[in-house]
């Protein structure tokens, strides 16, 4: 059974009277358990929308979204996924531990079990010394790591991440990518990861889904053959295979631009 099965999904937003935005147009995608899939494309191509449909934060206009064989709604109720956004979204009045414990608390996990789980997760993201800090006492990168720990709290088989490193500086970002690869290897969770950085997508993923805007469609799916998550490390960033994949994704993105004779349509994608 697939972790995510999106079949012929369309999403139309009604903006003003009569005006419509086709955010997604018959998109189909499957993600197998344990797989890391990135969604990449110029801004406005429907990456966030697709992720939100999988998370049941929005409903598709047409088509079907299945998560572990269930409806997205049921999967949300069963807490089959963890979620992280570009903004860490920590509750400012809760300590780091309190924030990580929030989903556990909401689902009736006992106090001792919560504490233990939060401690494990803090160790996993390297923030054990900051357990009792409040979010405003942490740097952006630390906050984002807490958010990731929180998304892992209930050991989900699926992680949904929308540009979680988008607001971080380049250095922190690379370190976080390395950490995420390690965490995924340890937890074995499938990940759907939205980004607008090509190197980030290639470094993290086994497959990169390249999308194009107006209407939002899947342009091409690039398979990255860089080995399993457990064997990826920083040296990979210098690897020839890495550059080959970066080139492939870039060409997939630009292919669209050539086709439309509108190079600006790839604006918003970092090709560094």
């Amino acid at each position: 059974m697939n972790a995510v099965e999106v079949t012929g999904v369309s999403k139309v937003f009604r903006v003003a009277k009569g005006a419509e935005v086709v955010a997604l147009d018959s998109v189909s995608l499957s993600v197998v358990p344990g797989e890391f899939v990135s969604l990449i494309g110029p801004s406005g191509c429907g990456k966030s929308t697709l992720l939100r449909l999988i998370a049941d934060l929005d409903q598709p206009t047409a088509g079907e979204v299945l998560v572990f064989g269930k409806s997205a709604r049921q999967a949300r109720i069963d807490q089959d996924y963890g979620i992280a956004f570009q903004q860490a979204g920590l509750l400012p009045w809760r300590t780091v531990t309190g924030n990580i414990e929030l989903p556990l608390e909401l689902h009736g996990v006992g106090k001792a079990a919560r504490r233990a789980r939060a401690q494990d997760l803090l160790a996993l993201v390297g923030l054990s010394d900051f357990a009792d800090r409040y979010p405003d006492q942490l740097s952006g990168g630390m906050q984002q790591r807490v958010a990731i720990a929180r998304s892992l709290a209930e050991s989900p088989e699926l992680l949904l991440m929308d540009e979680p490193f988008g607001a971080l500086d380049e250095m922190t970002r690379e370190r976080m990518q390395t950490e995420l690869v390690r965490i995924c290897a340890e937890t074995g969770a499938a990940v759907v990861f939205v980004t607008h950085s090509i190197p980030e997508a290639v470094y993290l993923s086994s497959r990169v889904v390249v999308m194009s805007p107006r209407p939002g469609r899947i342009q091409e799916v690039v398979t990255v053959g860089l080995g399993s998550a457990g064997t990826r490390d920083d040296a990979l960033r210098e690897d020839a295979a890495f550059f080959a994949s970066v080139k492939a994704v870039r060409e997939a993105l630009h292919g669209d631009a050539v086709h439309e004779k509108a190079p600006h349509s790839v604006r918003g994608v970092e090709t560094r």
Partner: peptide, 17 residues
């Protein structure tokens, strides 16, 4: 924030929680 409300929604937290 909308983000916090959606987070609670993703946790399937009811109105009371």
């Amino acid at each position: 924030d909308k983000a916090h409300l959606e987070l609670m929604h993703s946790y399937a937290a009811g109105w009371w929680s």
